[in-house]
C-alpha cells in the first residue's frame, strides 16, 4: 500500500463520508490548499532536489489529487498547472518546484483547484484547506480556524491541530489489518498509480509553461 495518509486524517475521512452519504449531492467543484515553509528538516534537503522529490506538484499536492479522485469517484481528464520558472523561484537554492497552482478536470464534469507550496516564509505553520461544492451543498475543512489548541511563546504563536488518534498510526494499523485479517485496502496500487499520473501531468504542464495535459499520460515526465 502506498502511504496516502490523508485518507486516514479524520477531517478528510469525514468529508469523504459526508460526500458519500449525499450530504452535498454530486460533487462539482473543489479547492484544496497545502502549504508551508520549506521543510528544512528534510535529510540533506532531498525535498529540494527535483529528481528525488518531484517538488510540490508531485510530493505535496499528490495528497490532494488522491483525495479529490477518491471524493469525486472519477478519473481525471485534463490537468493544467503553473509554477514559477527557475528565475522567479522563491527558494533559489533548490532545484525542485517550490510552488504550484493546478486546474483539474474530471471526466464526468467535476473540476478542482489545487495550490501547493513550500515557499511560505520560515516559521509559517503547515496549513491545509479543503472545500467541496456539490449539487446540494458545500463543505469546508479549514485546519487553521478549527485547530483546538493555541500555543504562545515569546515572539511566536501557533494554532495546533490535535488528533484523537495519530493518522499515521491509523494508516499502519489499517495495513496491518489488511495483512492479518484481509481487510480490503483503503488505498490500492491503482489508486496510487492514478494519483502519481495526475502529479506527473501537473508537473509536465507546469514545466511546459502551463500547457494543458490530457490523461492518461503516454510518456515519462521526469527524465
Amino acid at each position: 500500500m502506498v502511504a496516502h495518509v490523508l485518507r486516514f486524517f479524520p477531517e478528510y475521512a469525514r468529508a469523504k463520508y459526508l460526500v458519500e452519504v449525499g450530504a452535498i449531492g454530486e460533487p462539482r467543484i473543489a479547492r484544496a490548499y497545502r502549504y508551508s515553509s520549506f521543510p528544512a528538516w528534510s535529510v540533506k534537503g532531498w525535498y529540494g532536489e527535483h529528481r528525488l522529490s518531484g517538488g510540490v506538484l508531485v510530493d505535496l499536492a499528490i495528497h490532494d489529487y488522491d483525495f479529490l479522485r477518491w471524493v469525486f469517484m472519477d478519473e481525471v481528464d485534463r490537468v493544467c498547472a503553473l509554477a514559477p520558472p527557475p528565475e522567479k523561484k522563491v527558494i533559489k537554492e533548490i532545484t525542485a518546484v517550490d510552488h504550484g497552482i493546478v486546474l483539474i478536470k474530471f471526466r464526468k464534469g467535476g473540476i478542482a483547484y489545487v495550490m501547493a507550496s513550500w515557499s511560505y516564509p520560515q516559521g509559517y505553520p503547515f496549513s491545509t484547506y479543503l472545500e467541496i461544492v456539490g449539487t446540494k451543498g458545500i463543505l469546508h475543512v479549514d485546519n487553521k480556524s478549527t485547530a483546538p489548541l493555541g500555543v504562545a511563546k515569546p515572539n511566536s504563536y501557533e494554532r495546533q491541530q490535535v488528533y484523537p488518534e495519530d493518522p499515521y498510526y491509523l494508516e499502519i494499523l489499517h495495513f496491518a489489518e489488511h495483512v492479518v485479517k484481509g481487510v480490503p485496502l483503503r488505498v490500492t496500487a491503482e489508486d496510487a498509480y492514478k494519483a502519481l499520473e495526475i502529479a506527473l501531468a501537473a508537473l509536465k504542464s507546469a514545466l511546459e509553461g502551463g500547457a494543458p495535459v490530457n490523461l492518461p499520460l503516454k510518456e515519462e515526465v521526469i527524465p
Binding site: 503553473l82 486546474l103 464534469g109 467535476g110 473540476i111
Partner: peptide, 26 residues
C-alpha cells in the same frame, strides 16, 4: 498575456448559464 479556464458541470442544474469556473492567468 495568457488565460486558461475550465468549467465544470453546473452546481445548479436548472440554469441556462455556467455557475462555476476556474481560471489560470499569466
Amino acid at each position: 498575456y495568457e488565460v486558461f479556464a475550465e468549467v465544470g458541470e453546473n452546481i445548479r442544474g436548472d440554469l441556462e448559464v455556467e455557475d462555476n469556473a476556474l481560471i489560470l492567468i499569466k
